[in-house]
Design a protein around this nucleic acid. Sequence first.
DNA 1: CCTACCGATCGGTAGG
DNA 2: CCTACCGATCGGTAGG
Lengths: 206, 206
Amino acid sequence: MTTTTRRGPYAKSAAVRRRILEACVDAFGETGFHGATMKDIAKRAGISHTGLLHHFARKEDLLAALLDLRAERGARILELTGALDPSAKPIEALQGMLTVLVDNELQPGLMELHCVLSGEATSPEHPAHRYYTERYRNLRLFYTRAFTALDERGELRSAFDPATLATMTIALINGLQAQWLFDRNSVEIVGAVRGFLQSVIPAMDR
Amino acid sequence: MTTTTRRGPYAKSAAVRRRILEACVDAFGETGFHGATMKDIAKRAGISHTGLLHHFARKEDLLAALLDLRAERGARILELTGALDPSAKPIEALQGMLTVLVDNELQPGLMELHCVLSGEATSPEHPAHRYYTERYRNLRLFYTRAFTALDERGELRSAFDPATLATMTIALINGLQAQWLFDRNSVEIVGAVRGFLQSVIPAMDR
DNA sequence: CCTACCGATCGGTAGG
DNA sequence: CCTACCGATCGGTAGG
């Protein structure tokens, strides 16, 4: 087979789908799911409206594919930073999350996307409602495991229980990112989160 | 004048405008500014589409009036709780904000509205962008003044400066409210915020 | 406040 | 029978 010259239809299709989903990050990030239009997304992706519909028959399919991609990438990054097991390596897990926060600031489009979509998805009828409900639940589970492990090792100094600390950490991160999107000079996301974690975990001095 | 029987056009108009803005809280809260439709808002308010256009010619006018009303009510509540001057009475100011949080939980529709709109308003082109930019800035100013006053009295125990503490407090509140909207059983807003404030202000033991 | 509409644009589909 | 689209247009609805 002449694999060097021939690309095949699948390779092309995958590249187009990638361009489409990149366009979705911008479109959904700017006006949300409701405000975005299929025709605008097609234009941003550089294909025709019907070309877009060939790949994604409905607007909801577009959102589902985008959220799948984001969840997949998020899991992969955590794996690379070795922060997958918060119970066994809680400090590494929390520092891995800080690394993700640093990375997020380099991709403001993705932060805006999650900020806008999670706001819209508050309504139970929103196509991303289940996604964000589970995302929050999984994040609380992740942080609760890390704080519980630290507590059992006697490395937690806080009046709050691990579960409440988990909820607070997530809230702090999301709230800081939201403020940062409105005023990038007045908010220092990573420093504040790291400082908060250090204030309850003496061993986390780096 | 027969003030008892006659109401006059202004009284009726004001009542209709109130019903319209109440409908807007639900409509904008459920699908955001972009997702909401003028015809749906009219239906919720119990008037015709064109009747709505008589009171508010454009969708943006509706949003502006709603945000004005919210800002006005928020200022009035703070005034009533005697928390208007964070520099002179910092503890009272912070406890006043806690009172507002308690009140917010009784009006989930308003919390959803702000969550959805502030997410959408991340984009500079959004009609509420300026409103939320200034809202965040004013809130940071309010909390910074309270924490600065406490610091000068030697009542602040934190590695963070007052401005950073202000940003973090606001972030915590917004983030907790967002999570609460997705899972009301797993998140305890007021307790977490009060605990956070108590952890940096020993004098705030109530 | 209503009926009667407008230019345009919506998400989605036709045949090729 | 497949893919990766295209130009044109469907019935309905948006804000005004």
